[in-house]
Design a protein around this nucleic acid. Sequence first.
DNA 1: GTAGGGTTAG
Length: 629
Amino acid sequence: MLTSAFGLHMTTLPPDTNSPAAPKSYTPHLLHKFDSPAELKQLHAHLIKTNASISVLPLPKVASVCSRGRCFPYAQHIFARSDNHDTSVWNSCLRALAEGDHPIDAVSLFYQMRTSDVLPDAFTCSFLLKACVSLLDIANGKILHGVVEKLGFGSNLFLQNMILNLYGLCGEMADAMLLFDKMPQRDVVTWNTVITQMLKRGDIEGASRLFSRMPERNIRSWTLMISGCVQCGKPKEAIDYFLKLEEESGLRPNQVTVVSVLAACADLCALDLGKRVHEYSNRSGFKTNVLVCNTLIDMYAKCGSLEEASRVFDEMEGKRTVFSWSAMIVGLAAHGRAQEALSLFSSMLQDGTEPNGVTFVGLLHACAHMGLVDEGRAFFTSMTRDYGITPGIEHYGCMVDLLSRAGLVKEAYEFIMEMPIKPNGIIWGALLGGCRLHKDIKLAEQAIQHLSVLDPLNDGYYIVLSNIYAEAGRWEDVTRVRKLMKARGVKKTSGWSKITLGGGIVHEFVAGDESHPQAEGIFRKWDELAVEMKLRGYVPNTSLVLLDIEEEQKVKFIYRHSEKLAVSFGLLNTPAGTTIRIIKNLRVCEDCHSALKLIAAISGREIVVRDRNRFHCFKDGCCSCGDYW
DNA sequence: GTAGGGTTAG
């Protein structure tokens, strides 16, 4: 173990110049000139040329240059040639190893150091902790913790924070909390470290409890709450933190804050807040940050505003990355703008950007939404052949969707049977969706067989199947499916819709929701709309209400669908002429789809609905999906 | 010298 410390990397060593015959001729003035690894390299080459001994180099300086430049082989070489090791030389080598992607060797070297007379100091411990962090090496981390205590660094906040972080990263939350509780002092980093770990575990409540107890917060504290909430699927809470940050902290959001809050805006369709953040970002000079730009593109695309997404894309000052292109392509695809997605892909290739798996998901998705079967097949072949990308389950999913949507359900089925990876629920669900569109009951039953094994508690699939039966007038089968759901304990997911108003405040509606403070006004607005819609020929489509109730009840039922409530609320609470943006957890139903087309016409508004798999932009009585969804 | 950042199929 100890001898292998350097042995592992002997091949990367510079050539040995320490042969017995080497005369000690060197150029002294060179020794003090170098200051960078590159210069060190030159010097080294010079020494080899002149056959000089490397041991004449001023060791501490060499070690520190190596360490700063993470120049591992030189550090190793110098170290092995010298017997004059004081703590700082050990430290330089440890640092070069720990930071230069050789953490295992750093740990080994530490054990070697422990057998020498030289005592580790706080720097030694910090480099070692760094190595343990990159290795997630909790065993050595705990040993190191003991060493830190024994050496009397128990009150070194910096080291304590690193240990805390290591415990958290290794999943030793209990130890982390123990340490946190008994730490004599804590600084903002201490708090941030613990909160980060709690958020990583999805413990938003614990994290926000700690956050509220913090004696002081910096911009990172706020940012990690924001990004933590986004990653835990709580964008609303993320936005709440951002608004509070603006209101009460007096701190300035930085680029990371901006990226995090934009992700929340994207999730929530909070376009107004997103725009405000965009302006702030431009004012703050973040325009050159590629990550900020990519996130902006994604945010605008997910808020249904492709024009603004492409404006950001066109005006990007930094070099576009594959993320920028993919975000645009995926966005166009979700809006059903397949041709534009495809031609953007050509531009991407001309630009010399290599596509990745996500790019192809976007392309295949685009093809699926517009029925471009041949193009889709070509992309699927090309991704492996021309770009060496192995299709993932998501690509197979797109292909099954593409084929079965286009009516090629049998081929889709064969495609699934020939897949080299095990199909998941999404794959069979895509086939099931196609079977519904093309009324293939037999194949739908096959799909549901697989689904009841792969994803037995997902209500969506049973509902699609019972819709298929309902449309075919097979009511006994509808009943059978409903009984099956009951027997299996499948609960119906209730649909919800969310709308975000200008101030970033999110309003959420579930079907039949009477809990909203404005409920009365919302229902009145809906009734008004319904009257006008009927004049324009709207007939409530109740065929998909699967309850055994009177027709009148059915109408009442669909009238209370969450998107209808949300759009009525939106009309009441947004200025005339502005676009209404709604997100929905399920797919929009047929009745809501035709209702929304009419409402867009009646109100003269654009209504953008992001449902669980695409965008619908309702305008002047039409929908951007062309009723193919 | 320690803590926070992005795209994906139903």
